[in-house]
Structures are given as structure tokens and as C-alpha cells.
Design a protein around this nucleic acid. Structure first.
Lengths: 194, 194
DNA sequence: TATATCATGTAATGCGTTACATGATTTA
DNA sequence: TAAATCATGTAACGCATTACATGATATA
């Protein structure tokens, strides 16, 4: 009955369309040229995904044909914006930390334009505490099983650990950035209102 | 005509079976309990994958029924071992660095048991130079587009950069470990031969 | 004797990948 | 005028996910 939730690609498309109205080709070019996200820029991925988003009413399209080449431009519908928001503000599960860190990063990258600094800080706090809890688990595993592993196996595990650690450090850095920017905003608005 | 190459899951199964003969259930438990790899432990993923590997002749199975529960135990065939080796020693492409770092890590983790220290060092060198080339690209992108990005977008990009950087640092650390262990082996064998 | 664990599978579904296909418009 | 780029799609295929299904054996 209920249409299923979008995939990660679907959500990314929603977020990018929310930033600005875009065509399928625009989106392909974004995926091809920006280093942030690991999505395929192949038409066979993007056009069907857009079609599905439109069929489920999350986006709407208008064909523009003025002088230029014919172009189908998409915009978010109200329900599309709502879907995007609930995705962005979904609580961080343990699984997100263990197996879908990349998804968390994509989510994070799109937060400002949709849920503002409050929501972004909220996500960062959840990421920070999730990571802070997970790193020691990995270290415990390494201490227990490391000695029995091959050198390459152990080093691969250590690579995972150090990557999580650097992510944890980053999350704290990002929190500081946000708190600084919030103070700045507070200061500026107080200047205005005075 | 030619059977297609295994998927990443298929290669991981090959490598784990190469470490020791294992059953489907053994493999499921490994995926469920070890933190290294992000594979699903669901039977719907593993049993069909094993079936396919057997159909293409890369593994062979024997049903064991002695006293315990009935169990299908898999071993690598010669062609399976060959397939595994060519996968492990495949040259590192730019795409591997940009979009499949996780795969590189999986590959790396399985190298010792199959291609030895020589091959592992080779992979590490390729990873190191690929990463060393890619990090500045990302930094250039950040410098060019960062100012126009939202704070969360920019921070997400910075997170990617710092993660690549920490991976680069790790690759150099891993190289030192291997060179140290190689010297140790050389020393020990020279002691033996003297 | 009821529950958890061992152990192996199948079925429906959906999505992404690769490859194919088309046509208009700049640019060299 | 040939090639590159803009722009949108479809078709075949394979694989993973989720859910379902079964039955034996420890364990409480």
C-alpha cells in the first residue's frame, strides 16, 4: 500500500533538488564532478530513480524548452520536503556507525539547507557519542584477536580503527565550528535588535 | 560464455574459505561477529553466493554428517585459488581510491595468506601513491568550492579529506611494519643458513 | 518440555550496473 | 563536416535484502 522509502540515492537526489531545481543531466554532472559522494553518474541509475520519486509524489517536473535544449527540471513537492526532513533527523543507530558511515556523511552534508544549525548539531552529538562508544569496542577486539591474526589482517583492522578515530576527532571539530557560528549569529542578531 | 567474475562478497568468501575450510554457517557467524567487513550475515546473501561459486567451479563442497549436525564444508578449487590471486594482485585504479576504498581494505586484509609479504607490500605502495595523489586534488577542490558551500557541506568534505589523510598515514605505517618484518625474516633465515 | 542455537536453504522484490539508443547543438 | 557535449531515456541482467521455511540438537 504505502510506497516504500527512497534509497540513499533517492534521498541524495531529494536533497540536491532541494538546494536548487535541477534536471537529470545537472544531477549526473554533479555526481561526476564533485568528490563528496560515491554515487554513479550513469543515466541508468539516475533517470529511473527520478521517475520513481516523481511517481511517489516526492518531486514534480516541468519540461523547459525555451530556445535551449529541451530539459526536464525537477522541484521538491511538500511531501518530498517532509520525507527529506524525517530522513535527515532520523536518530543515529548503532548500525549507522558500524556499516553506513558514508550515509551519515551524506546526510550531514545536506543538513544546513534543510534543518538548520540546531538539527546539524544534534546529529553531530549523536555521531560523536556513537563513535566514542564504538572505538573502544574495536580496540578490545583487536587486543583479543589481533595476536592470532595475520599481519595484513591485523593492519586492516588497525586501519579501520584509525579511520574511526579520525572521524571522531572530526566530529568534535565540527561541533566546535557550529558552536562558534551559533555564537556569531547570536551576537549579530543582538547587534541588529539593539 | 565465460562465467562472470565473482562479486566482492564472492571474493571475500573465497578468501575466507582459503584461510580454512568453512561451512555457510561458519561464514555467516564470521560476518556477524567480526567488525572488519561490512557484509551481511543473512542466509539469503551467503547461501546463493556459495552456490554460484560452486557452480562456476571455484569452490567444492563435501557434506559432513559425522555425529554432529549435517554440515556442508567448502574448499577452494585450484581455479578458485587462481581467481583469488588475480583479484588480490589486480593493479590499483584511480576508481578504487575514489569509490572503493573499503574493497581495497578487504583485499589487503586477505593478502598475507595468499600472496605473501611481497604482494602485500606491492599493494601498499600502490595505495600510498594513489592516496598521495588524490589528497591534494580534494584540497584543491575544497579551496575552489569551499567558500560557496554551506558549513555542513564544507565540513562533510573536510571529513572526507581527513579520512583520506589518515588512510595515507596508515599506509606508510603499514609499509614500515612490512619492511621491518621482512628484515626480521631475512635475519632469521641468515641465522639458520649460517 | 520449551526455548535457543545450529544449519541450510527458497521466494519475492527492488535496485543499480552495463550497455544500448536517440537526437539536438556547439565547437574544431 | 566531424567530433564532442548536451540531454533523456530503455532493456537485460545480476545481486543483495527481507521474509519465509524447515528440522535437528543442546540447554534450561
Amino acid at each position: 500500500m504505502k510506497p516504500p522509502d527512497p534509497t540513499l540515492l533517492g534521498y541524495a537526489l531529494l536533497a540536491l533538488i532541494h538546494q536548487a531545481p535541477r534536471s537529470g543531466y545537472d544531477l549526473r554532472k554533479l555526481f561526476a564532478t564533485t568528490p563528496l559522494m560515491s554515487f554513479s553518474d550513469s543515466p541508468g541509475a539516475i533517470y529511473p530513480a527520478l521517475k520513481k520519486l516523481e511517481q511517489t509524489g516526492l518531486i514534480r517536473s516541468v519540461v523547459r524548452d525555451q530556445g535551449l535544449r529541451r530539459k526536464r527540471v525537477f522541484r521538491l513537492s511538500p511531501s518530498g520536503l517532509a520525507k527529506l526532513k524525517t530522513w535527515l533527523t532520523r536518530p543515529v543507530q548503532r548500525e549507522d556507525i558500524i556499516r553506513h558511515v558514508d550515509q551519515l556523511l551524506v546526510r550531514f552534508g545536506f543538513m544546513d539547507e534543510t534543518v538548520g544549525a540546531e538539527g546539524t548539531i544534534d546529529l553531530l552529538r549523536q555521531m560523536e557519542s556513537g563513535l566514542a562508544a564504538y572505538v573502544p569496542e574495536l580496540q578490545t577486539f583487536l587486543a583479543a584477536h589481533g595476536p592470532a591474526m595475520s599481519l595484513s589482517g591485523r593492519l586492516a583492522l588497525e586501519s579501520g580503527i584509525s579511520s574511526y578515530k579520525s572521524f571522531l576527532v572530526w566530529s568534535r571539530y565540527a561541533l566546535r565550528q557550529y558552536e562558534a557560528s551559533r555564537k556569531r549569529v547570536a551576537y549579530e542578531t543582538s547587534q541588529h535588535s539593539s
